[in-house]
Design a protein around this nucleic acid. Structure first.
Lengths: 112, 112
DNA sequence: TACTCATGTCTGTACATATTGACATATTCG
DNA sequence: CGAATATGTCAATATGTACAGACATGAGTA
């Protein structure tokens, strides 16, 4: 997974709130999400969902006029891999079958 | 911890690389970090360290002319709390004594 | 076909931020 | 004290992006 896209997507508080909202249920239609927000409108939500979708944090299912979004569970691995690399033993019992041999967060990232 | 500041700080790839670099050792001086980067200079590193410091992701220790940075281990809790809220049972064995009763990632975040 | 509904996309604007060079600060050493 | 070293800060520039309004698309329905 592209950690740049994922962490960039998670940097926005509204996107994290959308994630938390979708996480409440198995899946959630766009209109349902829009209703829950006072500060941003439909176009804003749509833009945020696009970012979340392109980064792989959520998946989309179309049914009729509706689009249902749900959390892409495997997307947590990218974040957890970063935590494992940086915090190591300080994280007690963090597993999630993380492949810490992935070089994505190795010191070589300096050449990025 | 301020999740806005933390996720915002982690959104930059260079800052994540700096975190991974510091995580390699117990602590690391600024010059040591600067040497490891080709793409950004000393002022850039200094700015990134400022962001990391203000968000609570790293701590600073001064000794003589040097400033040693180290990972603030408790800062992982904020990220893990978010993961727990959104991914829930999908995360196997993620503990880190997360206080999931914290309302920071509750659905009420929409009013932010 | 015509109409409605749910949602995405495009464009423009306002604001945030990453980066650098020049300058400032603080510490050590002679 | 004066010079050197390590690091932070400021100003300016360039690039990214969040949001809204207008428009487009695609599915259902009469």
């Amino acid at each position: 997974m592209d950690s740049d896209a994922i962490f960039s997507a998670l940097s926005d508080p509204n996107r994290r709130a959308i994630m938390a909202l979708i996480g409440e249920k198995e899946e959630m239609a766009v209109g349902e999400i829009v209703e829950r927000f006072d500060t941003i409108g439909r176009t804003g939500i749509s833009s945020h969902l696009r970012v979340l979708r392109l980064s792989g944090l959520v998946t989309e299912r179309r049914e009729g006029n509706f689009r249902y979004y749900s959390i892409a569970t495997q997307s947590a691995d990218t974040v957890v891999a970063f935590l494992s690399t940086v915090y190591k033993d300080s994280l007690s019992g963090l597993s999630v079958s993380v492949d810490t041999s992935s070089t994505e967060f190795a010191a070589d990232e300096r050449t990025a």
